[in-house]
């Protein structure tokens, strides 16, 4: 079911947290609300499920307006960061709770609980208590409880934040699998760009209560609309260098990067270059000189910080085995067709 948030405004006391936000999540789509802490992404989620009330704007689930309905009448499923399982009920009762408060008959409840437990792969855990489950299992129970009454929208609030690294990887694909199998419209709130990029169809990147960019993950990575988006996505992060257009080159100090063919810039204009680590290295030429100032071996690949003469640092990622030493001088190049250009205010050129 399509979710449509129009001109949504939320204030706490006198502080405006979100001001006039528009967001449309298509039917069956999984949308990430990505952003740093305090950007308003959780507030948005809690407003969509009705825990917070809107101060302005409208919210539609399909054709139904739910802006002023209490949570109980919105038909949303929510997975909370701490799962919020009911500790005094066993897993079966936890999952059945949304059905029980609807006063469904017990055979229907039992059937639906069984179905959903099989979907999330926990049929053998139904008689246990939440305290007896691992984090990943609790996560699955929370998903089952959120999905059991076939909600219009599934909302996930930082669902992986409380898991260890290995489980996080597993649950990432599990949540996506379950979302695809049920075909439910879902919103994932996260501050982890990897989660957002790997799990979602589209990402809404938020900053200070506004959506900065809304696009598909690869589009957002390759084509960020400003330095904030470029800097938020990618690990290790992108490096920014101030440069000037000098003929067919961007120049900074004694270093230069060729302007990609077909692009035109005003000669002498000052701008910022965004260089992702995978686009800086020996395979791209020898026009940038610097000293290795940091080495990190990550097994499959090596990470280098190269400090230029003027003190600017550019990060590079190389296949493992290059074995460069700290302090070594290198002359590397930048992949000119992948360089991102921004004006000095940070907007994409």
């Amino acid at each position: 079911m399509q979710l449509k948030l129009k001109n949504f405004t939320k204030t706490f006391d006198s502080t405006t947290v979100i001001d006039g936000m528009d967001l449309t999540v298509n039917d069956g789509e999984m949308m990430a609300l990505l952003g740093p802490s305090g950007c308003g992404k959780s507030t948005t989620l809690f407003t969509i499920c009705g825990i917070h009330r809107m101060n302005g704007g409208t919210l539609h689930f399909g054709d139904r307006e739910v802006s002023n309905l209490p949570s109980q009448q919105r038909n949303v499923g929510v997975v909370f960061q701490n799962y919020a399982l009911y500790p005094h009920m066993d897993i079966r009762d936890n999952i059945a709770f949304p059905l029980r408060v609807q006063k469904l008959d017990s055979t229907t409840i039992a059937r639906k609980v069984k179905e959903i437990a099989e979907l999330v792969h926990i049929p053998e855990l139904l008689d246990r208590r939440p305290a007896q489950l691992s984090g990943g299992q609790q996560q699955r129970v929370a998903l089952a409880r959120a999905l059991v009454r076939k909600p219009d929208v599934l909302l996930l609030d930082e669902p992986l934040a409380n898991l260890d690294a290995k489980l996080r990887l597993e649950m990432r694909s599990e949540i996506r699998r379950i979302q695809l199998e049920t075909g439910i419209t879902a919103i994932l709130v996260t501050h982890d760009q990897v989660e957002a990029m790997s799990m979602c169809d589209r990402i809404a990147l938020m900053k200070d209560g506004k959506i900065v960019q809304l696009s598909e993950p690869s589009e957002m990575y390759n084509n960020p609309s400003n330095v904030f988006v470029a800097g938020f996505l990618g690990n290790p992060p992108i490096s920014f260098v101030k440069a000037q257009v000098q003929g067919d080159d961007f120049g900074f100090g004694n270093n230069r990067v060729a302007v990609a063919p077909g692009l035109k810039f005003r000669v002498g204009g000052a701008l910022q270059l965004g260089i992702r680590p995978e686009h800086f290295g020996p395979q791209f030429g020898r026009d940038v000189q610097g000293k290795i100032s940091f080495v990190e071996n990550q097994g499959r690949e090596d990470l280098y910080n190269v400090t230029l003469e003027n003190g600017v640092v550019i990060r590079s990622i190389q296949p493992a085995g290059t074995r460069l030493k700290l302090g070594e001088t290198v002359s590397w190049g930048v992949s000119s067709e992948n360089v991102l250009t921004f004006d000095l205010q940070g907007a994409r050129l």
């Binding site: 499920c49 109980q72 960061q81 009911y86 949304p98």
Partner: peptide, 19 residues
Amino acid sequence: SMLHASEVDGANRWQQVRY
């Protein structure tokens, strides 16, 4: 969050108190 969860699960006040 547990009280919020029960609300989005559809429980009214009385059910929230009771369960």
